[in-house]
Write a protein that binds this DNA or RNA. Structure first.
Length: 244
DNA sequence: AGTAGTGTTCGGCC
DNA sequence: TGGCCGAACACTAC
């Protein structure tokens, strides 16, 4: 489910509920006051990276699907919903997700230029942020939601393979064209991810993630748990250069 | 059939 | 004070 492009798919899928009034709200969430939602009109749906945002006139529900979260539109699962929104016609159900009410205006909270899928995305800001952390590993930089909001582990592995950079390269040691390629490919692959996910052909197009052999050099991929968060990294030690 | 993982937060511990 | 670690979430795919 949950990398940025999947949230864009969710946002598109729920558009019919934009502008609609919530007739009833329920679920097993401990952080949501369901009373507050009933009778409220959804102004619009937004997203920031992996955050899905349901906007009302005076507050916003932030939904994060984490690793296992899921949703159903006009359908229900067996398990109890964390948040279930009922409309005059249809319903929207979320499961195993993290919910939070945001009271402040979103523009005060979110840097829209950091979201690789957003039209406000600005690579100059990403470059500036990376330059302020020269000792950071590129694998950590790509997963840093303040720099590349929406990028997850699959996108990280695919981007680094495509631009031939070793995940343990230091941000400050990347030649400037490689820095640029990082920002360009993070966006480019995210939109390819979006299209392939819609076609249900995402996995078929993986070149590195979960793969055994490098398609360029025909040698085994390294599989290591790297970076601050010890996430799975698949990389080729021949074609992916380590800048240190 | 068991296990790891597209992610993040939080609390405990050193 | 801060960084590191495990737990929690609950399901699917290999």
């Amino acid at each position: 489910m949950p990398e940025g492009p999947s949230i864009v798919i969710l946002k598109e899928a729920v558009q019919s509920f934009a502008g609609k009034k919530i007739m009833a709200a329920l679920g097993n969430s401990k952080t949501i006051d369901f009373q507050r939602l009933t009778g409220k009109k959804i102004i619009e749906f937004k997203s920031w990276g992996k955050h899905f945002l349901i906007c009302f006139s005076d507050f916003t529900i932030r939904i994060h699907l984490l690793l296992f979260g899921s949703y159903r539109i006009n359908e229900r699962k067996e398990t109890p919903a964390r948040l279930s929104l009922h409309f005059k016609k249809g319903e929207l159900n979320f499961y195993a997700c993290s919910l939070k009410i945001i009271e402040r205006p979103l523009d005060e909270i979110y840097d829209w230029t950091a979201d690789v899928m957003n039209e406000c995305w600005d690579p100059k800001n990403a470059l500036k942020k990376m330059k302020s952390h020269p000792g950071m590993l590129v694998c950590d930089a790509l997963l840093d939601q303040q720099i590349f909001s929406g990028v997850g582990n699959i996108i990280k592995n695919e981007v680094l393979f495509r631009i031939r950079i070793h995940p343990e390269s230091l941000v400050g040691k990347l030649p400037s064209p490689k820095m640029k390629a990082l920002t360009t490919e993070a966006v480019n692959y995210s939109f390819q991810f979006l299209e392939w996910k819609k076609e249900f052909t995402l996995k078929k197009h993986w070149l590195a993630h979960n793969k055994k052999t490098c398609p360029r050099d025909h040698v085994p991929f390294r599989k290591e748990y790297l970076g601050k968060t010890n996430r799975r990294s698949f990389f080729c030690t021949i074609c992916q250069l380590k800048y240190v």
